[in-house]
Amino acid sequence: MIFKKTKKLEMQTDQFLDKVSEAGLTFLVGVKAYLNDDKEEFEHQIEKMRILENDADFLRKKIEIQLYTDTLIPESRGDVLALLETTDDVVDIIKYTLVEFSVQVPNIPKEFHEQFLKLSDHVIQAVEEMVSAMRSFLRDPLGVRNYLHKVYHHEKEADHLAEKLKRGIFASESLDLSEKIHLRYFALHVDMIADYSENVADRLSIYTIKRSI
């Protein structure tokens, strides 16, 4: 009985992490579609993202309820719940950012496409490494370090690229101030995805010490 429940929970956490990873990849495809002005593909990715975010939320709640009702992992329950919630925040910010592209339809000049793509690529790599670190935390705490330093690396790269992008935007002579401020907002929000992943990584680095016997 106890093993059956455990197996189900394992599956659900794996599914939850799959959703997080998929949300990241969907974001990347969505941004590419937006920059290529492929509206149909972009709206398709937005729709996909809404479903992923819903599913992730549903799974997180299910896991949390089961952890409490069956009083499972009493020692690390608080840590795992905090991890699930901060990871869910990552999905939320990914979805929010992509939806804002659809709502605000920013005008991104061609000269900044490359930098936007590079920035998105780094933030999503940070998400991917964070998901791997989470999986490792659940199965092999000693292996978490292998992923954490990659999360930090991509987060720093994203910060650097976002700053470079913002400098470029404000230095541009072809954009109005309102457009500059608008674009800066998007650079900031895309970069925040990496910051949220870093939050999860920070928690993981502490919880891993607690988890190792």
Binding site: L9, I73, L138, I213
Partner: peptide
């Protein structure tokens, strides 16, 4: 146990169940 946990790589939830038993 430390060695075995590293080799087996048990999921946190499964480790919890085994530990209870």
């Amino acid at each position: 146990l430390k060695k075995l946990m590293h080799i087996w790589k048990l999921h946190l939830f499964r480790l919890d169940a085994y530990t209870r038993v």
